[in-house]
Amino acid sequence: MGTLNTSSGGGFILLGFSDQPQLEPIISVAVLLFYLMTLLSNTAIILVSSLHSRLQTPMYYFLTNLSFLDICYTTSIVPQMLVNLWGPKKSITYAGCFLQFFIAFDLGATECLLLAVMAYDRYAAVCQPLRYVVVMHPRFCKKMVAASWLTGLGGALGVSSFIFSLPRCGHHTIDDFFCEIPAFLKIICEYTNIIDVFIYILGVIYLLLPLGVILVSYGVITQAVTKIKSGRGWKKVLNTCGSHLTVVTLFYGSAIYMYLQPQKSSSYTVDKFLSLFYTIITPSLNPLIYTLRNKDVKGALKWLFIRIQSSEQTSTE
């Protein structure tokens, strides 16, 4: 068969969970609920971090960017997914698939870098508390965040152009619920070792290097913590770093499994449910993880709720 690309037009079929139709209604309801939770909780984090004076710190500046990223990430996936789950057609246009692929990689790569930046911030807070204000100067924080977004954007441009230029021999059925690298590579008709090398290089740049920064930061933090003799000091460090470590574990655990395994050996079913976890569920859990152990955020959320209630009462009078 000759090499034929669908890059000139047409579109793709997203099979999603059509091989398990009995689960589609349950999945669609769960996805909608988690999506609404993502929108509400991350928007609340953005509002309280921007409006409350006690949260005008580097950590919450980074958290605001992470919340905005999660909103954009899930919004690029969920609406199209719900349309396909609720309707008879499972299709997506070529432009829609390319855009979804581009946004997913861009924001996923940016999140990897942001989590590394947040780990460095925790290192500065625990190991250099007296110089923290100088080390984490607002201008420096903005530069690190801008570098994370731009690096993710640059990588997404290169990766999207390369992956969509690969020959598909007329294949246009993607066994997933959105357009992402692992699922897209399964419809490439001339899969070579060069592609595997390319994927592993991406994994090193956007997963392993940021993870290395995180591990080194927490290695130094651990050394500093072992010198703390008071239980109160231990508790303070745990509250400072515990939430970030939980988010890192959830995000990197699933991402490394998806992107750093041989593509031919992966299971379609496992991959889809894992994708569902890190694209839909994790973004809704991040705000909860950061607020459950954080008195400042819980206090700020209470303040925001009271402020909204008072404004509603004023408007009705």
Rank of each mutant, 00 (worst) to 15 (best):
A300I: 00
G170P: 03
V237S: 06
G203L: 03
S266D: 00
V145D: 04
N286D: 14
L207E: 11
T240V: 10
L36H: 14
C141L: 01
F140W: 14
L36F: 15
T192G: 05
G212R: 01
A109Q: 06
P88D: 13
E317M: 11
P25I: 05
L166R: 02
C169A: 06
E190R: 13
V297I: 07
L157W: 08
Q309E: 13
I201S: 14
V220R: 14
Y206M: 04
G96S: 07
M136D: 11
Y200Q: 10
S76W: 05
L113W: 03
S243C: 07
I45G: 08
S76N: 13
I181A: 11
Q128D: 13
L51M: 14
T75G: 04
Y132C: 01
S91L: 10
L238T: 13
Y218Q: 03
I201V: 14
Y278P: 01
V133F: 12
S284K: 02
L85R: 01
L304H: 05
G96A: 03
K264I: 08
L113C: 14
I92Q: 07
T75P: 04
Y60G: 02
R293F: 15
V83R: 13
A109N: 11
V126R: 02
A147S: 09
I181W: 12
L55R: 03
S67W: 15
S254I: 06
T291A: 09
I45V: 14
I205R: 05
A156C: 02
F178A: 05
T64F: 14
F101W: 05
I201F: 13
A95R: 10
W303R: 05
I306W: 09
V117Y: 11
F184V: 00
F305E: 10
P88I: 09
S265H: 04
V159L: 05
Q22H: 12
F305D: 06
Y218F: 10
C72W: 15
I306K: 07
S284D: 05
P58V: 01
K302N: 09
L245P: 01
F305V: 12
V29A: 12
V159N: 04
F198D: 00
G152N: 04
K229F: 12
V159P: 01
M81S: 00
I103L: 05
V197C: 10
F98Y: 06
D175P: 00
P167S: 02
G10F: 02
I188V: 15
D175H: 08
